[in-house]
Computed example of a mutant assay.
Amino acid sequence: MDGDAVVRPKEAYHAKAEADFRRNLGIPDWTVRQRLALACRILSMEGHGSGLAGQLTARGPEPGTYYTMRFGLGLDEITATNLLLVDDDLKVLQGEGMPNPSNRFHLWIYRARPQVNCIVHTHPPQVSALSMIGVPLKPSHMDTSMFYEDCAWLPEWPGVPIGDEEGRLISEALGENRSILLAHHGLLTATTNIEESAVLALFMERCAGLQLRAMAAGTIRDLPPEVAREAHDYRLKPKPVQATFFYHARAAMRAGHAEALG
């Protein structure tokens, strides 16, 4: 290059970006209940609502306890105060009402994956359409590279997931992946925190929509593996993922969803 321009290896820029993320991207002091309620409102705004279908859960304050939505409420109605606390057999410990019986398959994932702290399961339209044609998710764009080699596929629908067999099948199919596309059903994301599970759900719907459009136009080209893996790791850096969640949370609150916090 001309003049005194400095050329550094790409790893140096990754390290600088990571340091800048830690220094400049803060985290609001919201409780687990508040963040889970905001995740519900964000997903509702982004078209993930399907009546009473879908569930968001997060680990509770004691081992074997979980926060979940009250059955009968939609994503757009969830608040920090109307969430239920249940045990590992879906018995209500705190709150009024009942959990969705389909939460049982979440319990199988929590037992198999101790590091998972939040599960998002929804039936958004693009993902649901892709799930109907027997095609796995195919990330082939920078914006959806977080799913590269990190999204499982359950090719057969085991039925309404209110029993233990469905929980076993879904948990085993998910394996160590963060996400899974469920045939004839929807999406599921399972990660260490609420922000990441919610953001992955948002981008999985975007990935499905891009995939359906690309399939209608031609043949989708594969990402080069080496750069795809680099992009996967970069897109899943914790601070930018949190910043993405809080961006959507601010939009939700501007749209009248601040009540979710209370």
Rank of each mutant, 00 (worst) to 15 (best):
G3D: 06
D4A: 12
R8I: 06
K10N: 07
E11Y: 09
D20P: 03
R22E: 15
L25S: 07
L25N: 01
G26V: 11
I27N: 14
D29L: 14
W30G: 08
R33D: 04
C40W: 13
I42A: 15
I42T: 12
S44L: 04
S50C: 06
G51P: 09
R59L: 04
R59Y: 13
P61M: 10
T65I: 08
T68K: 05
R70K: 10
F71N: 10
D76R: 00
A80F: 06
D89F: 00
L90I: 03
G95A: 10
G97V: 06
P101H: 08
F105M: 02
I109T: 13
A112F: 10
P114T: 00
P114F: 06
N117K: 14
T122L: 00
P125Y: 04
F147K: 06
Y148C: 00
E149Q: 15
E149W: 01
L154D: 04
P158N: 06
P161V: 02
E165W: 11
R168M: 02
L181S: 12
H184I: 01
L187K: 03
L187Y: 09
A190S: 11
T192N: 12
M215S: 14
A217V: 01
T219P: 04
V227S: 14
A228D: 11
R229M: 12
H232S: 08
K239S: 13
V241H: 02
A243I: 01
A243N: 00
A243Y: 10
A243H: 13
A252W: 02
